[in-house]
């Protein structure tokens, strides 16, 4: 890449960091427990709105994984999410009523918090409906992974978004608080993903899965991106550009091997398609606070009204990470 190209990327990164700095005033701290953060703690950052019912399982899942502290931005919830989070001993909570869309879909807020509190830590950025699965996650805590990444001089760990869906109509099995959502949304597409490499940012742009085949079959270019790099050894100079799909400096996006080998990677099980989704999509259609003017939500609610079953006879039922490894959706790399 030319010097000018590199400089342009640098400007983009600095602009993104400046945006985060400007938006810091939108955040009001409700509970600051960041002093409890230990030196080697893995930190989880998340933005959410009205996710009260999902929170107990979400927190449990990541506590069991070994997350040291949760830093959460709550965006205008009115369902008790805020009150619930305030009571959690390992959660630092910020709140804002500002526009989700104008903060780059939460990216600016989290970039700011990561800069303030994430420097030198491994940081995991996930939504409340995303569940990280990494090699050996059933026997090794996340500190084992981050220690290994440190020893291997790796700064970023990719985990592709894997859309999970139930069998049958989406609202047939209502989600109960505290329940593992993967019990309901247990199915996924194993082998219909397309990959393109973006030469500017070096990231791989992955699309496909049930959303592409069910909602974007006539316009696949607009199907949502599934590549994600949620786990990063954060430095205050870094910035997420678009959700957790792309980072700068761009070397952080280079999480794949180009000479035939496999680097280690995980998956984010995306438990979006529960019965709660129908209410959400109705609400989001009017709020228009999501990516590309809530186009996804529009496509979903149209699609879900007509054919409510994403399941097909070729769908795979989720068992464990080893299954995802065999299917080629993630890899152990040289971690053994």
């Amino acid at each position: 890449m030319s010097v000018i190209g590199k400089y342009r990327l640098r400007l983009k990164r600095q602009r993104q960091r400046l945006r985060a700095w400007r938006k810091r005033g939108e955040l009001r701290c409700l509970r600051d427990r960041t002093r409890a953060i230990g030196r080697g703690d893995v930190l989880l950052f998340s933005t959410l709105r009205n996710e009260r019912i999902r929170l107990p399982y979400f927190l449990r899942y990541y506590r069991e994984m070994g997350i040291g502290h949760f830093l959460i931005v709550e965006n205008g919830s009115d369902d008790g999410s805020r009150e619930y989070l305030e009571e959690q001993p390992d959660v630092s909570l910020w709140t804002t009523q500002a526009s989700y869309k104008r903060s780059g879909f939460g990216v600016d807020w989290l970039n700011w918090l990561q800069r303030r509190h994430g420097h030198g830590h491994w940081t995991l950025v996930v939504d409340v409906d995303e569940f990280l699965v990494y090699p050996f996650c059933d026997t090794r805590p996340i500190r084992a992974l981050t220690d290994w990444l440190d020893a291997s001089a790796l700064r970023a760990f990719p985990a592709m978004l894997l859309d999970m869906y139930p069998k049958g109509p989406i609202d047939a099995q209502p989600y109960r608080e505290g329940q593992d959502p993967i019990e309901i949304a247990a199915w996924f597409d194993s082998g219909n993903y397309t990959i393109r490499r973006n030469p500017e940012y070096l990231d791989l742009w992955i699309q496909g899965g049930p959303r592409a085949r069910a909602f974007f079959a006539d316009d696949p270019a607009r199907a949502p991106a599934l590549n994600k790099i949620p786990l990063v050894k954060w430095d205050r100079r870094y910035a997420y550009m678009r959700s957790t799909h792309v980072l700068l400096p761009r070397g952080l996006n280079y999480v794949y091997d180009e000479f035939g080998g496999e680097k280690a990677s995980g998956c984010l099980l995306h438990a979006k398609f529960l019965d709660t989704f129908l209410d959400k999509s109705a609400e989001e259609m009017t709020r228009r606070q999501h990516y590309a003017a809530s186009r996804e939500y529009r496509a979903y609610s149209a699609g879900l009204r007509e054919r409510t079953d994403l399941w097909c006879p070729w769908s795979e039922k989720y068992i464990n990470w080893r299954q995802l490894e065999i299917l080629g959706l993630m890899s152990k790399g040289n971690w053994a």
């Binding site: 990719p158 985990a159 592709m160 993903y193 990959i195 490499r197 791989l204 992955i206 590549n227 999480v255 794949y256 091997d257 180009e258 000479f259 035939g260 080998g261 496999e262 680097k263 280690a264 990677s265 080629g328 959706l329 993630m330 890899s331 790399g333």
Partner: peptide
């Protein structure tokens, strides 16, 4: 790596 596999961490 595994021959014929194209994925998030193997893109030859």
């Amino acid at each position: 790596g595994r021959a014929g596999l194209y994925m998030q961490s193997r893109y030859p």
